[in-house]
Design a protein around this nucleic acid. Structure first.
Length: 399
DNA sequence: AATCCACGGGAAGTGCCGGAAT
DNA sequence: ATTCCGGCACTTCCCGTGGATT
């Protein structure tokens, strides 16, 4: 814009990135090791191990916050299983379903059936047009015809609209739907509370084993980022950049995806300013942006009044830096003020209680039941899990 | 073919109230 | 004794569907 060679509208050469695709969200590390998940990988392998002897693998539920490597490990282990079982003469199939995309029973079955199907069969799986039960019938046939064992990975399982498909999958064997093929289900959720919402019978069969994925610490994040530093040109990254970005990401949520985002944003900022190197100041700005994005994503789809309630909690947190949890009645008072500012009629206390509970399920806030002591009643306290500054900024700029 | 309308289902929201907690 | 949580029944509003009418 202000440079001497400003007649150059487009730059001819990328000064910062060499292989930017390494930093794209969906990029999976193909070669090299998965950082810091050895225990989880071997536990998962252990649960699936019976498949090697043509026996039923255990059903598993994986918990952990976003960006802790759940999907990655599930995919990795199941792929290894297919290879090793092949050497043993056992045919293993894997179906991966992203339940955020296929959130209904029909869509999910359709995806499973069409990914496990091969042209060798005379079974066709149309995109649409047949009933759910027909999909199931064809799926059972495919599985029996082609595989000894099938592992079904249900990612973001909490996004499913109902438990019907879990019901079908968990009972497929005993209900006589499958004759030769054994079924194993890996459920992946980033909501610890998801299990509470599950049907009791599904829960007992699907959660034979549970593993919790802890957030990455700063060292692990640093290793993850360094494994992708080839995305940048030689010498562009200052030596302190990655450790700084890792430290910041670890401090916030230990989310590897976000850590990579920070790195990419920092590069883009450097690019936008025609800098030759990625300096630390860019990392700081990038972190702010990544954090805003993350929170924006978290509250996407929330109703206006949900946001007002969150805003009220953020205001309380900012006004009282020494306290971090507030009882419902105080939140409601501030919420009423927010509504007045927004020129909107406040909802009832009953409704706001529910809205806050929804936010707690989404891990935006945390609730704890408290008691005031003798003759003082009991109540719930709400604590914001996000940086109040970020919450306020995002919520205010949304309007 | 375009318009209208009745209908059902689901989400949002309210009020009531028994009961948990200390 | 006190606070307020959370289940329940109920209302209101919106939206997609599908058949009837113009």
């Amino acid at each position: 814009m202000s440079d001497a060679d400003s007649d150059e509208l487009f730059s001819r050469e990328d000064l910062i990135f060499a292989k930017k695709e390494l930093l794209e969200i969906n990029h999976l590390p193909t070669h090299g090791r998965i950082v810091g998940r050895d225990d989880e990988i071997s536990a998962l392998a252990n649960a699936l191990n019976p498949a090697l002897f043509n026996q039923s693998p255990s059903n598993v539920l994986l918990y952990g916050k976003t960006g802790t490597g759940k999907s990655l490990c599930a995919k990795h282990v199941s792929r290894r299983l297919v290879d090793e079982a092949d050497e043993e003469g056992v045919t293993v199939g894997v179906a991966y379903v992203d339940c955020a995309q296929d959130s209904t029973e029909t869509q999910a079955v359709q995806t499973i059936a069409s990914t496990t199907n091969t042209p060798d069969t005379d079974i066709s799986i149309p995109d649409k047009g047949i009933s759910t039960s027909t999909y199931y019938k064809r799926l059972w046939r495919i599985l029996d015809d082609l595989y000894d064992v099938v592992v079904i990975i249900l990612d973001e399982i909490d996004k499913l609209e109902n438990d019907d498909i879990l019901m079908q999958l968990s009972r497929a064997g005993e209900a006589g739907k499958l004759h030769n093929c054994k079924l194993g289900v890996i459920g992946i959720s980033n909501k610890i509370k998801y299990k509470d919402r599950m049907d009791e019978r599904v829960k007992s069969s699907l959660c034979e084993r549970e593993f919790v994925f802890p957030p990455y610490d700063a060292n692990q994040l640093r290793a993850i980022m360094e494994a992708r530093s080839d995305a940048f040109k030689q010498g562009v990254l200052e030596p302190g950049t990655i450790p700084l970005a890792a430290a910041q990401a670890a401090q916030e949520h230990g989310d590897a995806r976000k850590a990579i985002d920070i790195l990419r944003y920092a590069g883009e900022l450097a690019q936008a300013e025609n800098a030759e190197r990625v300096r630390e100041e860019y990392v700081k700005k990038a972190r702010e942006r990544a954090e805003n994005d993350r929170f924006r994503e978290l509250i996407r789809g929330a109703t206006p009044h949900s946001k007002y309630a969150l805003q009220a909690l953020a205001i309380l947190s900012l006004d009282n830096p020494d306290v971090d949890a507030f009882r419902t009645s105080r939140v409601y008072e501030v919420y009423e003020q927010v509504c007045r500012q927004m020129d909107s009629d406040p909802l009832s206390t009953r409704r706001v209680r529910d809205l806050l509970r929804e936010q707690a399920f989404l891990d935006v806030i945390e609730q704890a039941r408290q008691s005031g002591g003798s003759a003082e009643g009991s109540y719930t306290e709400h604590r914001l899990l996000e940086d109040p500054e970020v919450v306020k900024k995002v919520l205010v700029t949304e309007e």
